[in-house]
Design a protein around this nucleic acid. Sequence first.
DNA 1: TAAAAAATTTAGACTAGGCTAAATTTTTTT
DNA 2: AAAAAAATTTAGCCTAGTCTAAATTTTTTA
Lengths: 220, 220
Amino acid sequence: MQNSFTEENYLKIIHALSGRDGGEVSTNALAESTATRAASVTDMLRKLAEKGLINYKKYQGVTLTEQGEKVAIKVIRKHRLWEVFLVEKLGFGWDEVHDIAEELEHIPSEVLVEKLDTFLGHPKFDPHGDPIPDAKGNLTEPDYKVLTDVQIGEKVRMMGVLDHAPSFLQHLDRSGIKLGSIIQVKEINEYDKSASVQIDGGESLFISLEVSKNLLVQRR
Amino acid sequence: MQNSFTEENYLKIIHALSGRDGGEVSTNALAESTATRAASVTDMLRKLAEKGLINYKKYQGVTLTEQGEKVAIKVIRKHRLWEVFLVEKLGFGWDEVHDIAEELEHIPSEVLVEKLDTFLGHPKFDPHGDPIPDAKGNLTEPDYKVLTDVQIGEKVRMMGVLDHAPSFLQHLDRSGIKLGSIIQVKEINEYDKSASVQIDGGESLFISLEVSKNLLVQRR
DNA sequence: TAAAAAATTTAGACTAGGCTAAATTTTTTT
DNA sequence: AAAAAAATTTAGCCTAGTCTAAATTTTTTA
Protein backbone atom coordinates (compact mmCIF):
# COMPACT_ATOMS: atom_id res chain seq x y z
CA MET A 1 0.00 0.00 0.00
CA GLN A 2 1.24 3.46 -0.97
CA ASN A 3 1.64 6.29 1.52
CA SER A 4 0.24 9.69 0.70
CA PHE A 5 2.17 12.91 0.36
CA THR A 6 0.82 13.97 3.75
CA GLU A 7 1.62 10.69 5.46
CA GLU A 8 5.18 10.83 4.16
CA ASN A 9 5.54 14.31 5.53
CA TYR A 10 4.40 13.30 8.97
CA LEU A 11 6.85 10.40 9.02
CA LYS A 12 9.70 12.60 7.87
CA ILE A 13 8.93 15.17 10.53
CA ILE A 14 8.54 12.58 13.27
CA HIS A 15 11.94 11.27 12.26
CA ALA A 16 13.48 14.72 12.44
CA LEU A 17 11.90 15.59 15.77
CA SER A 18 12.68 12.33 17.51
CA GLY A 19 16.38 12.99 17.10
CA ARG A 20 19.20 10.48 17.22
CA ASP A 21 17.78 8.77 20.32
CA GLY A 22 14.46 8.04 18.64
CA GLY A 23 12.58 9.60 21.53
CA GLU A 24 8.86 10.32 21.68
CA VAL A 25 7.49 13.21 19.67
CA SER A 26 4.60 15.22 21.06
CA THR A 27 1.38 16.10 19.32
CA ASN A 28 2.00 19.79 19.75
CA ALA A 29 5.49 19.62 18.29
CA LEU A 30 4.04 17.91 15.24
CA ALA A 31 1.28 20.46 14.97
CA GLU A 32 3.87 23.21 14.88
CA SER A 33 6.13 21.48 12.35
CA THR A 34 3.31 20.51 10.04
CA ALA A 35 1.63 23.90 10.38
CA THR A 36 -1.64 22.29 11.37
CA ARG A 37 -3.65 22.10 14.59
CA ALA A 38 -3.15 19.54 17.32
CA ALA A 39 -6.56 18.02 16.66
CA SER A 40 -5.59 17.33 13.05
CA VAL A 41 -2.36 15.73 14.18
CA THR A 42 -4.24 13.40 16.47
CA ASP A 43 -6.36 12.22 13.56
CA MET A 44 -3.33 11.53 11.42
CA LEU A 45 -1.55 9.72 14.26
CA ARG A 46 -4.47 7.34 14.64
CA LYS A 47 -4.22 6.63 10.93
CA LEU A 48 -0.47 6.12 10.85
CA ALA A 49 -0.69 3.85 13.88
CA GLU A 50 -3.34 1.77 12.13
CA LYS A 51 -1.00 1.36 9.18
CA GLY A 52 1.75 0.19 11.50
CA LEU A 53 4.03 3.12 10.75
CA ILE A 54 4.19 4.60 14.23
CA ASN A 55 3.87 3.50 17.86
CA TYR A 56 1.12 5.58 19.36
CA LYS A 57 -0.75 5.46 22.63
CA LYS A 58 -3.09 8.26 23.49
CA TYR A 59 -1.45 11.12 25.39
CA GLN A 60 1.94 9.35 25.20
CA GLY A 61 3.59 10.84 22.12
CA VAL A 62 4.80 8.81 19.16
CA THR A 63 7.85 7.02 17.82
CA LEU A 64 8.40 5.48 14.41
CA THR A 65 8.09 1.74 13.95
CA GLU A 66 10.81 0.04 11.96
CA GLN A 67 8.56 0.23 8.93
CA GLY A 68 7.82 3.90 9.50
CA GLU A 69 11.52 4.62 9.89
CA LYS A 70 12.16 2.97 6.54
CA VAL A 71 9.62 5.15 4.80
CA ALA A 72 10.96 8.28 6.48
CA ILE A 73 14.51 7.53 5.43
CA LYS A 74 13.46 6.94 1.85
CA VAL A 75 11.83 10.33 1.78
CA ILE A 76 14.93 11.93 3.29
CA ARG A 77 17.12 10.18 0.72
CA LYS A 78 14.99 11.54 -2.09
CA HIS A 79 14.89 15.03 -0.62
CA ARG A 80 18.66 15.24 -0.30
CA LEU A 81 19.42 13.73 -3.68
CA TRP A 82 17.08 16.18 -5.37
CA GLU A 83 18.78 19.02 -3.50
CA VAL A 84 22.12 17.91 -4.88
CA PHE A 85 20.60 17.84 -8.34
CA LEU A 86 19.13 21.30 -8.01
CA VAL A 87 22.39 22.84 -6.79
CA GLU A 88 24.97 20.84 -8.73
CA LYS A 89 23.17 20.44 -12.03
CA LEU A 90 20.65 23.25 -12.26
CA GLY A 91 22.69 25.92 -10.54
CA PHE A 92 20.34 26.84 -7.70
CA GLY A 93 21.79 28.37 -4.54
CA TRP A 94 21.74 26.28 -1.37
CA ASP A 95 19.24 28.76 0.03
CA GLU A 96 16.75 28.20 -2.78
CA VAL A 97 16.27 24.46 -2.95
CA HIS A 98 14.38 23.45 0.13
CA ASP A 99 10.84 24.11 -1.01
CA ILE A 100 11.32 22.52 -4.41
CA ALA A 101 12.93 19.44 -2.91
CA GLU A 102 10.00 19.29 -0.52
CA GLU A 103 7.83 18.59 -3.56
CA LEU A 104 10.21 16.35 -5.47
CA GLU A 105 10.79 14.10 -2.46
CA HIS A 106 7.28 12.70 -2.85
CA ILE A 107 7.62 11.59 -6.46
CA PRO A 108 7.24 7.82 -6.30
CA SER A 109 9.55 5.46 -8.22
CA GLU A 110 12.39 3.50 -6.74
CA VAL A 111 14.15 3.32 -10.06
CA LEU A 112 14.00 7.08 -10.48
CA VAL A 113 15.80 7.59 -7.19
CA GLU A 114 18.49 5.07 -8.02
CA LYS A 115 19.08 6.48 -11.49
CA LEU A 116 19.23 9.97 -10.06
CA ASP A 117 21.73 8.79 -7.46
CA THR A 118 23.90 7.26 -10.18
CA PHE A 119 23.62 10.36 -12.34
CA LEU A 120 24.81 12.48 -9.43
CA GLY A 121 27.73 10.15 -8.72
CA HIS A 122 26.40 8.68 -5.47
CA PRO A 123 26.86 11.80 -3.36
CA LYS A 124 27.26 11.26 0.37
CA PHE A 125 26.10 14.70 1.49
CA ASP A 126 23.57 17.23 0.34
CA PRO A 127 24.34 20.93 -0.27
CA HIS A 128 23.81 21.71 3.41
CA GLY A 129 26.17 19.00 4.57
CA ASP A 130 23.42 16.60 5.61
CA PRO A 131 24.24 12.93 5.01
CA ILE A 132 22.33 11.11 2.27
CA PRO A 133 20.99 7.68 3.28
CA ASP A 134 22.17 4.89 0.99
CA ALA A 135 19.84 2.79 -1.14
CA LYS A 136 19.49 0.25 1.64
CA GLY A 137 18.31 2.87 4.09
CA ASN A 138 21.47 3.25 6.13
CA LEU A 139 21.76 6.75 7.45
CA THR A 140 24.85 7.51 9.51
CA GLU A 141 24.84 10.89 11.12
CA PRO A 142 28.44 12.08 11.37
CA ASP A 143 29.11 13.53 14.82
CA TYR A 144 30.08 17.04 14.02
CA LYS A 145 30.16 19.60 16.75
CA VAL A 146 28.61 23.00 16.93
CA LEU A 147 30.88 26.00 16.58
CA THR A 148 29.96 27.17 20.09
CA ASP A 149 31.85 24.14 21.42
CA VAL A 150 35.10 25.11 19.72
CA GLN A 151 37.96 26.49 21.84
CA ILE A 152 39.68 29.77 21.13
CA GLY A 153 42.55 29.25 18.73
CA GLU A 154 41.14 26.02 17.29
CA LYS A 155 40.89 25.62 13.53
CA VAL A 156 37.90 23.64 12.32
CA ARG A 157 36.26 22.82 9.03
CA MET A 158 32.70 23.90 8.32
CA MET A 159 30.68 20.77 7.58
CA GLY A 160 27.02 21.68 7.79
CA VAL A 161 24.25 23.82 9.17
CA LEU A 162 21.51 23.18 11.69
CA ASP A 163 19.25 25.94 10.45
CA HIS A 164 18.23 25.62 6.80
CA ALA A 165 16.38 28.91 6.56
CA PRO A 166 17.19 30.85 3.38
CA SER A 167 17.92 33.96 5.42
CA PHE A 168 20.54 32.13 7.47
CA LEU A 169 22.16 30.57 4.41
CA GLN A 170 22.23 33.90 2.64
CA HIS A 171 23.87 35.40 5.69
CA LEU A 172 26.58 32.76 5.47
CA ASP A 173 27.02 33.50 1.77
CA ARG A 174 27.56 37.17 2.54
CA SER A 175 30.06 36.20 5.24
CA GLY A 176 31.99 33.98 2.87
CA ILE A 177 31.30 30.89 4.97
CA LYS A 178 30.59 27.75 2.98
CA LEU A 179 30.90 23.98 3.28
CA GLY A 180 34.57 23.15 3.63
CA SER A 181 35.62 26.58 4.84
CA ILE A 182 38.31 26.58 7.52
CA ILE A 183 37.18 28.55 10.51
CA GLN A 184 39.60 29.66 13.20
CA VAL A 185 38.10 31.04 16.38
CA LYS A 186 40.11 34.08 17.38
CA GLU A 187 38.18 35.45 20.28
CA ILE A 188 34.91 35.02 22.14
CA ASN A 189 33.10 37.96 23.62
CA GLU A 190 32.13 37.10 27.19
CA TYR A 191 29.14 39.43 27.20
CA ASP A 192 27.10 38.15 24.27
CA LYS A 193 29.14 35.10 23.27
CA SER A 194 29.67 36.51 19.81
CA ALA A 195 32.88 35.29 18.24
CA SER A 196 35.60 36.73 16.11
CA VAL A 197 36.63 34.18 13.52
CA GLN A 198 38.92 33.97 10.54
CA ILE A 199 37.58 32.27 7.40
CA ASP A 200 39.98 30.35 5.15
CA GLY A 201 42.90 32.30 6.50
CA GLY A 202 41.40 35.49 5.11
CA GLU A 203 39.85 38.40 6.89
CA SER A 204 38.29 38.18 10.31
CA LEU A 205 34.64 38.72 11.03
CA PHE A 206 32.26 38.68 13.95
CA ILE A 207 29.55 36.11 14.16
CA SER A 208 26.76 36.14 16.67
CA LEU A 209 25.97 33.31 19.08
CA GLU A 210 22.86 32.65 16.98
CA VAL A 211 25.07 31.91 13.99
CA SER A 212 27.63 29.88 15.96
CA LYS A 213 24.89 27.68 17.33
CA ASN A 214 23.85 26.71 13.80
CA LEU A 215 27.24 25.90 12.32
CA LEU A 216 28.41 22.29 12.34
CA VAL A 217 32.15 21.85 12.25
CA GLN A 218 34.79 19.19 12.47
CA ARG A 219 38.22 19.27 14.07
CA ARG A 220 40.87 18.77 11.38
CA MET B 1 -4.39 31.62 -7.41
CA GLN B 2 -2.72 28.22 -7.83
CA ASN B 3 -4.29 25.33 -9.73
CA SER B 4 -4.36 21.90 -8.17
CA PHE B 5 -2.74 18.78 -9.52
CA THR B 6 -6.19 17.59 -10.59
CA GLU B 7 -7.18 20.84 -12.25
CA GLU B 8 -3.94 20.89 -14.22
CA ASN B 9 -4.63 17.37 -15.42
CA TYR B 10 -8.07 18.26 -16.66
CA LEU B 11 -6.73 21.25 -18.56
CA LYS B 12 -3.95 19.19 -20.10
CA ILE B 13 -6.38 16.52 -21.20
CA ILE B 14 -8.88 19.02 -22.56
CA HIS B 15 -6.05 20.50 -24.59
CA ALA B 16 -5.06 17.11 -25.94
CA LEU B 17 -8.61 16.07 -26.80
CA SER B 18 -9.63 19.31 -28.45
CA GLY B 19 -6.98 18.78 -31.10
CA ARG B 20 -5.45 21.33 -33.43
CA ASP B 21 -8.82 22.97 -34.16
CA GLY B 22 -9.58 23.64 -30.49
CA GLY B 23 -12.95 21.93 -30.83
CA GLU B 24 -15.35 21.06 -28.03
CA VAL B 25 -14.50 18.17 -25.74
CA SER B 26 -17.29 16.01 -24.35
CA THR B 27 -17.88 15.05 -20.76
CA ASN B 28 -17.67 11.37 -21.57
CA ALA B 29 -14.37 11.74 -23.39
CA LEU B 30 -12.98 13.47 -20.34
CA ALA B 31 -14.36 10.81 -18.04
CA GLU B 32 -12.55 8.18 -20.06
CA SER B 33 -9.26 10.07 -20.22
CA THR B 34 -9.25 10.99 -16.56
CA ALA B 35 -10.39 7.53 -15.50
CA THR B 36 -13.27 8.99 -13.53
CA ARG B 37 -17.03 9.00 -13.97
CA ALA B 38 -18.98 11.51 -16.02
CA ALA B 39 -20.64 12.91 -12.91
CA SER B 40 -17.26 13.74 -11.42
CA VAL B 41 -16.21 15.42 -14.63
CA THR B 42 -19.29 17.63 -14.55
CA ASP B 43 -18.39 18.79 -11.06
CA MET B 44 -14.88 19.65 -12.10
CA LEU B 45 -16.05 21.45 -15.23
CA ARG B 46 -18.28 23.71 -13.16
CA LYS B 47 -15.27 24.51 -11.03
CA LEU B 48 -12.89 25.18 -13.91
CA ALA B 49 -15.51 27.36 -15.59
CA GLU B 50 -15.88 29.36 -12.40
CA LYS B 51 -12.14 29.95 -12.39
CA GLY B 52 -12.30 31.17 -15.97
CA LEU B 53 -10.16 28.36 -17.33
CA ILE B 54 -12.72 26.79 -19.64
CA ASN B 55 -15.79 27.77 -21.63
CA TYR B 56 -18.57 25.56 -20.45
CA LYS B 57 -22.31 25.51 -21.01
CA LYS B 58 -24.30 22.58 -19.75
CA TYR B 59 -24.62 19.73 -22.25
CA GLN B 60 -22.46 21.64 -24.76
CA GLY B 61 -18.96 20.32 -24.17
CA VAL B 62 -15.97 22.48 -23.25
CA THR B 63 -13.12 24.42 -24.77
CA LEU B 64 -10.18 26.07 -23.06
CA THR B 65 -10.19 29.81 -22.47
CA GLU B 66 -7.02 31.68 -23.32
CA GLN B 67 -6.05 31.47 -19.68
CA GLY B 68 -6.79 27.75 -19.52
CA GLU B 69 -4.76 27.19 -22.66
CA LYS B 70 -1.82 28.94 -21.04
CA VAL B 71 -1.94 26.71 -18.01
CA ALA B 72 -2.28 23.58 -20.15
CA ILE B 73 0.71 24.52 -22.26
CA LYS B 74 2.84 25.15 -19.21
CA VAL B 75 2.03 21.69 -17.95
CA ILE B 76 2.85 20.20 -21.34
CA ARG B 77 6.13 22.09 -21.41
CA LYS B 78 7.07 20.71 -18.03
CA HIS B 79 6.02 17.19 -18.94
CA ARG B 80 8.10 17.13 -22.09
CA LEU B 81 11.16 18.75 -20.54
CA TRP B 82 11.13 16.23 -17.71
CA GLU B 83 10.85 13.43 -20.26
CA VAL B 84 13.96 14.71 -21.99
CA PHE B 85 15.73 14.79 -18.64
CA LEU B 86 14.69 11.26 -17.77
CA VAL B 87 15.83 9.84 -21.11
CA GLU B 88 18.88 11.99 -21.88
CA LYS B 89 20.31 12.38 -18.41
CA LEU B 90 19.06 9.48 -16.36
CA GLY B 91 19.10 6.84 -19.08
CA PHE B 92 15.46 5.78 -19.02
CA GLY B 93 13.97 4.23 -22.15
CA TRP B 94 11.36 6.26 -24.06
CA ASP B 95 8.82 3.65 -23.03
CA GLU B 96 9.44 4.17 -19.30
CA VAL B 97 9.11 7.88 -18.74
CA HIS B 98 5.47 8.74 -19.17
CA ASP B 99 4.20 7.94 -15.69
CA ILE B 100 7.08 9.63 -13.93
CA ALA B 101 6.77 12.76 -16.05
CA GLU B 102 3.07 12.72 -15.24
CA GLU B 103 4.07 13.40 -11.63
CA LEU B 104 6.95 15.77 -12.27
CA GLU B 105 4.86 17.99 -14.54
CA HIS B 106 2.93 19.25 -11.53
CA ILE B 107 5.91 20.45 -9.53
CA PRO B 108 5.38 24.17 -9.25
CA SER B 109 8.22 26.69 -9.81
CA GLU B 110 8.74 28.73 -12.93
CA VAL B 111 12.42 29.05 -12.22
CA LEU B 112 12.82 25.30 -11.91
CA VAL B 113 11.40 24.80 -15.39
CA GLU B 114 13.59 27.45 -16.92
CA LYS B 115 16.74 26.14 -15.25
CA LEU B 116 15.86 22.63 -16.34
CA ASP B 117 15.34 23.86 -19.89
CA THR B 118 18.74 25.53 -19.86
CA PHE B 119 20.41 22.47 -18.36
CA LEU B 120 18.97 20.34 -21.14
CA GLY B 121 20.13 22.77 -23.83
CA HIS B 122 16.69 24.11 -24.78
CA PRO B 123 15.47 20.98 -26.52
CA LYS B 124 12.78 21.45 -29.16
CA PHE B 125 11.33 17.94 -29.02
CA ASP B 126 10.77 15.33 -26.37
CA PRO B 127 11.90 11.69 -26.67
CA HIS B 128 8.72 10.80 -28.58
CA GLY B 129 9.16 13.60 -31.08
CA ASP B 130 6.53 15.84 -29.53
CA PRO B 131 7.35 19.56 -29.73
CA ILE B 132 8.22 21.35 -26.48
CA PRO B 133 6.44 24.70 -26.00
CA ASP B 134 8.85 27.58 -25.44
CA ALA B 135 8.98 29.63 -22.25
CA LYS B 136 6.48 32.10 -23.66
CA GLY B 137 3.95 29.38 -24.31
CA ASN B 138 4.32 29.09 -28.07
CA LEU B 139 3.63 25.56 -29.20
CA THR B 140 3.98 24.89 -32.91
CA GLU B 141 2.86 21.48 -33.97
CA PRO B 142 4.98 20.43 -36.98
CA ASP B 143 2.79 18.95 -39.69
CA TYR B 144 4.17 15.49 -40.02
CA LYS B 145 2.21 12.88 -41.86
CA VAL B 146 1.25 9.41 -40.84
CA LEU B 147 3.09 6.52 -42.44
CA THR B 148 -0.15 5.23 -43.96
CA ASP B 149 -0.15 8.30 -46.21
CA VAL B 150 3.24 7.52 -47.68
CA GLN B 151 3.44 6.21 -51.27
CA ILE B 152 5.23 3.04 -52.23
CA GLY B 153 8.86 3.75 -52.94
CA GLU B 154 8.96 6.94 -50.88
CA LYS B 155 11.72 7.42 -48.32
CA VAL B 156 10.69 9.28 -45.19
CA ARG B 157 12.18 10.12 -41.83
CA MET B 158 10.55 8.88 -38.64
CA MET B 159 9.73 11.95 -36.52
CA GLY B 160 7.31 10.88 -33.83
CA VAL B 161 4.60 8.58 -32.57
CA LEU B 162 0.90 9.03 -32.00
CA ASP B 163 0.59 6.19 -29.52
CA HIS B 164 2.76 6.58 -26.42
CA ALA B 165 1.94 3.21 -24.89
CA PRO B 166 5.02 1.39 -23.58
CA SER B 167 4.03 -1.75 -25.48
CA PHE B 168 3.99 0.15 -28.77
CA LEU B 169 7.31 1.87 -28.09
CA GLN B 170 8.90 -1.43 -27.12
CA HIS B 171 7.61 -2.93 -30.34
CA LEU B 172 9.35 -0.17 -32.26
CA ASP B 173 12.54 -0.81 -30.30
CA ARG B 174 12.45 -4.46 -31.28
CA SER B 175 11.86 -3.46 -34.89
CA GLY B 176 14.81 -1.07 -34.88
CA ILE B 177 12.61 1.92 -35.60
CA LYS B 178 13.57 5.06 -33.74
CA LEU B 179 13.36 8.82 -34.08
CA GLY B 180 15.35 9.83 -37.14
CA SER B 181 15.23 6.43 -38.79
CA ILE B 182 14.82 6.50 -42.56
CA ILE B 183 11.86 4.40 -43.61
CA GLN B 184 11.34 3.33 -47.20
CA VAL B 185 8.00 1.81 -48.06
CA LYS B 186 8.64 -1.17 -50.33
CA GLU B 187 5.23 -2.69 -50.66
CA ILE B 188 1.72 -2.43 -49.28
CA ASN B 189 -0.42 -5.50 -48.87
CA GLU B 190 -3.85 -4.78 -50.32
CA TYR B 191 -5.60 -7.24 -48.06
CA ASP B 192 -4.68 -5.97 -44.61
CA LYS B 193 -2.77 -2.82 -45.49
CA SER B 194 0.31 -4.13 -43.76
CA ALA B 195 3.50 -2.73 -45.24
CA SER B 196 6.92 -3.98 -46.07
CA VAL B 197 9.47 -1.32 -45.16
CA GLN B 198 13.20 -0.95 -45.09
CA ILE B 199 14.72 0.76 -42.05
CA ASP B 200 17.88 2.84 -42.48
CA GLY B 201 18.74 0.99 -45.67
CA GLY B 202 19.06 -2.22 -43.70
CA GLU B 203 16.84 -5.25 -43.63
CA SER B 204 13.17 -5.19 -44.56
CA LEU B 205 10.36 -5.90 -42.18
CA PHE B 206 6.61 -6.02 -42.13
CA ILE B 207 4.62 -3.57 -40.09
CA SER B 208 0.92 -3.80 -39.50
CA LEU B 209 -1.58 -1.07 -40.32
CA GLU B 210 -1.93 -0.50 -36.58
CA VAL B 211 1.75 0.41 -36.41
CA SER B 212 1.71 2.51 -39.59
CA LYS B 213 -1.16 4.55 -38.27
CA ASN B 214 0.88 5.56 -35.24
CA LEU B 215 4.12 6.56 -36.92
CA LEU B 216 4.67 10.21 -37.76
CA VAL B 217 7.05 10.81 -40.64
CA GLN B 218 8.41 13.60 -42.78
CA ARG B 219 9.32 13.65 -46.45
CA ARG B 220 13.05 14.30 -46.83
C1' DT C 1 -41.12 13.29 -35.70
C1' DA C 2 -41.95 10.51 -31.84
C1' DA C 3 -39.76 6.95 -29.31
C1' DA C 4 -35.52 4.91 -27.83
C1' DA C 5 -30.80 5.41 -26.80
C1' DA C 6 -26.97 7.93 -25.40
C1' DA C 7 -24.97 11.65 -22.99
C1' DT C 8 -25.03 14.67 -19.29
C1' DT C 9 -26.33 16.66 -14.99
C1' DT C 10 -28.29 16.57 -10.25
C1' DA C 11 -28.78 14.63 -5.69
C1' DG C 12 -26.89 12.57 -2.00
C1' DA C 13 -23.00 10.14 -0.04
C1' DC C 14 -18.00 8.98 0.95
C1' DT C 15 -12.74 9.61 2.05
C1' DA C 16 -8.63 12.40 3.07
C1' DG C 17 -7.12 16.15 5.64
C1' DG C 18 -8.03 19.96 8.02
C1' DC C 19 -10.55 23.25 11.54
C1' DT C 20 -12.96 25.06 16.05
C1' DA C 21 -14.83 24.36 20.41
C1' DA C 22 -15.47 21.49 24.18
C1' DA C 23 -14.04 17.62 27.00
C1' DT C 24 -10.48 14.99 29.07
C1' DT C 25 -5.90 13.73 30.66
C1' DT C 26 -1.36 14.92 32.18
C1' DT C 27 1.81 18.05 34.21
C1' DT C 28 3.01 21.83 37.00
C1' DT C 29 2.33 24.90 40.77
C1' DT C 30 1.08 26.28 44.91
C1' DA D 1 -2.25 16.80 47.25
C1' DA D 2 -5.33 19.99 45.35
C1' DA D 3 -5.91 23.49 42.03
C1' DA D 4 -4.42 25.56 37.88
C1' DA D 5 -2.26 25.22 33.52
C1' DA D 6 -0.89 22.85 29.57
C1' DA D 7 -1.39 19.18 26.40
C1' DT D 8 -4.21 16.12 24.02
C1' DT D 9 -8.31 14.05 22.32
C1' DT D 10 -13.25 13.99 20.94
C1' DA D 11 -17.20 15.82 18.53
C1' DG D 12 -18.99 17.96 14.84
C1' DC D 13 -18.20 20.48 10.70
C1' DC D 14 -15.79 21.89 6.11
C1' DT D 15 -13.57 21.43 1.23
C1' DA D 16 -11.71 18.81 -2.75
C1' DG D 17 -12.50 15.21 -5.48
C1' DT D 18 -14.77 11.14 -6.23
C1' DC D 19 -18.84 7.76 -6.59
C1' DT D 20 -23.78 5.66 -7.59
C1' DA D 21 -28.40 6.19 -8.76
C1' DA D 22 -31.85 8.95 -10.55
C1' DA D 23 -33.37 12.76 -13.43
C1' DT D 24 -32.89 15.45 -17.49
C1' DT D 25 -31.36 16.82 -22.06
C1' DT D 26 -29.64 15.79 -26.57
C1' DT D 27 -29.07 12.74 -30.35
C1' DT D 28 -30.28 8.93 -33.06
C1' DT D 29 -33.34 5.85 -35.10
C1' DA D 30 -37.24 3.84 -36.77
